[in-house]
Amino acid sequence: MASAPTASARKGSGWFESWGGMAIGFASFFVIWHIAATWLVGSALFPPPWPVFLRGIVLAREGLLQDQILASLSRIMQGFLLGSILGVPIGLAMGSFMPVRKILEPYTEFLRFIPAVAMITVAVIWFGIGEESKVFLIIYTTIFIVIINTATGVAGIARNKIRAAQSLGASRWQIFLHVALPATVPFILTGMRLAMANSFTTIVAAELVASNDGLGKMLWDARLFMQIEDIFVALVCLGLLGFLVDRLFRWAIRTFAGRFSPLL
């Protein structure tokens, strides 16, 4: 692919830059956690990493951990994809046509200040404590960020890009397809990345409040039964999942959309 040389040139030169530094960073995190838990706090309420790890293994052996992770992840993925699929065209329309922008701006400007977390109660009343309410909340938390980023991207396209296409003989539709859309791809992807981070926050909050499974539910149950290590297993899982999903996202952007934005 044409973008391959760009991508590899941007990566760090050596093994250290690509993996070594990160490994040391993660290792130091667990070392500090261990020191803090064992010597600074020394309380049963703050377990060091090793017992948490062992507890995680036990939960994984029983298949419980995977179930919770899958429950949360599948909700995130459904809501995130639906929210993006809805948000991108709305954002494109808002950024391209002033009247559409004027009509829809009140919605986006009003609703984006009501956090998804605040919508949990309404969602549960409307959709019950099953999947629907969670997916609704993830769509809600995704869609506005994607819309706003997409609209900003379209509206910010350099005027000369459009003008150049016009005087090269492109039609309006071609300009949309071959100029406006690709010029906006980096903004769309940035919006989706931010939305993904929000989805994690939202799903945990929703599952804490009302759910039969998921990592949030696991946190809540562990608190009820004072299984302190389970709480930490869930927390570590959230961190790791978020990290991995974000990496995956960046990798996908670089591999499939690197040519749209050499800087992402």
């Binding site: 350099a158 890009k161 690709p182 040519r259 749209f260 934005s261």
Partner: peptide, 10 residues
């Protein structure tokens, strides 16, 4: 054009 913002980076 005067600047280079009319080229398509992608």
């Amino acid at each position: 054009f005067q600047g280079d913002d009319s080229l398509y980076e992608w």
